[in-house]
Write a protein that binds this DNA or RNA. Structure first.
Length: 460
RNA sequence: GGCCGGAUGGCAGAGUGGUCAUGCAGCGGACUGCAACUCCGUGAACGCCGGUUCGAUUCCGACUCCGGCCUCCA
């Protein structure tokens, strides 16, 4: 029995799909005007793991994640770069894909782009106008009439009156009400635009997702996910648009991952305190980033720092060390570890507990190595199988241990030469020289490990 | 001001009405030429004040502090 925390109710609920055995999930993707930062990575990884586990439970999942490729920020950035919006978005989409694959994600089943759904967007705006949920303001822009949707605010527990008390909403004369938001924007001269009954222009951000999600998954579907900062106004507005247009319930389960913080502040573009995925991958193996995300529950905030990455690296080293030079059985009989792992994941995807089960399995595996090779091989297979549900432990153990951090220091040949010299010194019982070499390598972040078969090394 | 989260051992991070998280770090031991890895053992926590209870870190209420959203933002 899968339990899912639903932002709409503020509770964990038993998950029940609309259609037995099938799940439709829509996740808000990125606006492609810049490289992904770690906050984006958190959202992408969280929903990747959620999608893996939903499939693991036997559901036929349709995972849709959009790409916002029309937007003010894209237009602005393209102008700054002196390139077309299309050239910018194509570059960023390619970069995002590359980052994501490096982080070990599986791609969604479908990645609709806003520009490919222009007709559907226009149709939806027209329906909203016909139903009087939208109007063309004096500026020519089309707005959603927030006051007409009686449930407006239900996702965020907000009332329109309370929101106005905050008095931080811009008063635009073109709008009937300050909470009204734009559905269709008039194009300025020279901007990319699409023809519509309300003039050449482009869609507002919120309507894009309503149009794409309902066209890809139907007007009523199971799960809608996204980052924590999308709850309001984006998802609130999506509900208002979609439910007003279709007259049906829009989404059953709203899921939001937690924020990534830096120095106890949210990482965001607006604050400028963000690190891109590329920044981090210049220093650490991508799986380290993934481990950091997975080591806490997807809804909790996580702190991002070199320190937290280093701790993630050390923890992951332990898992990989257990698999180094270890036979992995073809098949295995699922043990109590599988059961506990699955129980944790069924409880709102509690990856933190799932990971702790991996460590307990590793202890058992390390013990079995000396006593029962067959059992060890079986446990190793189980470890890899469970870790795969989290997208972990997919690399060759020896490779990972030598490349968990990115170093500009000694290359492998130089390291091997020193190891060979040390091996000879040890044979000669010249332990002074032997230790000298080990200390020298340690100074370069290389740790040696002697065993009967010889000496191996890892990067610390 | 409104709404939503959070406060757990040295650090990170789960969870539970009474007994175990887990990783790192610490301490003792085994293994090792010395180490590392690994294993065995071990100490250590639940913001503050009330309430409910035989018993609360866990449930309820107040308080303090921290974060998020209320404006584009994963």
């Amino acid at each position: 029995m899968l339990k899912v925390y639903n932002t709409l109710s503020g509770k964990k609920e038993i998950f029940k799909p609309i259609e037995e055995g099938k799940v439709g999930m829509y996740v808000c993707g990125n606006t492609v005007y810049d490289f992904c930062h770690i906050g984006h990575a958190r959202a992408m990884i969280s929903f990747d793991i959620i999608s893996r586990f939903i499939r693991h439970l036997g559901y036929e999942l349709n995972y849709v994640r959009n790409i916002t490729d029309v937007d003010d920020k894209i237009i602005k950035r393209a102008e700054e770069n002196n390139e077309s919006t299309q050239s910018l978005t194509e570059r960023m989409i390619a970069a995002q894909r590359e980052d994501e694959l490096r982080l070990g994600n599986k791609m969604p089943d479908r990645e609709p782009k806003a520009t490919e759904f222009m007709q559907e967007i226009i149709d939806m705006v027209q329906i909203l106008i016909d139903k009087e949920f939208a109007y063309q303001g004096t500026s020519g822009d089309v707005y959603y009439r927030a006051t007409k949707f009686k449930d407006y605010g239900k996702l965020n527990n907000r009332k329109l009156e309370d929101m106005l008390a905050g008095a931080r909403i811009d008063v635009e004369v073109a709008k009937e009400h300050p909470a009204d938001f734009v559905l269709w924007k008039q194009a300025k001269a020279g901007e990319v635009s699409w023809a519509s009954p309300w003039g050449d222009g482009r869609p507002g951000w919120h309507i894009e997702c309503s149009a794409m999600s309902t066209n890809c998954l139907g007007s009523h579907f199971d799960i809608h996910g996204g980052g924590p900062d999308l709850k309001f106004p984006h998802h609130e507005n999506e509900i208002a648009q979609s439910e007003a247009a279709t007259g049906k319930d829009y989404v059953n389960y709203w899921m939001h991952c937690g924020a990534v913080r830096v120095n106890n502040e949210k990482m965001s573009k607006s604050l400028g305190n963000f690190f891109t995925v590329r920044d981090v991958l210049a220093k650490f193996n991508p799986e380290v980033v993934r481990y950091l995300m997975v080591s806490s529950q997807y809804r909790s905030a996580i702190d991002y720092s070199d320190q937290s990455l280093l701790e993630a690296k050390v923890a992951l080293d332990r898992l990989y060390t257990a698999l180094r030079d270890q036979d992995v059985a073809e098949t295995f009989e699922p043990s109590v570890f599988t059961e506990r792992f699955e129980d944790a994941m069924k409880d709102d995807f509690n990856t933190a507990v799932a990971v702790s089960v991996l460590f307990e399995l590793v202890r058992e595996l390390n013990k079995a190595k000396a006593e029962d090779a067959k059992k060890a091989a079986s446990l190793a297979a189980e470890l890899r199988s469970l870790a795969e549900l989290l997208g972990l432990l997919y690399q060759d153990p020896a490779y990972f241990l030598q490349n968990s951090t990115v170093s500009e220091g000694l290359d492998e040949a130089a390291i091997q030469a020193l190891i060979d010299e040390r091996t000879q010194a040890r044979k000669d019982k010249n332990f002074a020289r032997s230790d000298e070499i080990r200390d020298e390598l340690a100074g370069q972040g290389i740790e040696l490990l002697d065993s009967r078969e010889g000496t191996t090394w890892t990067r610390s």
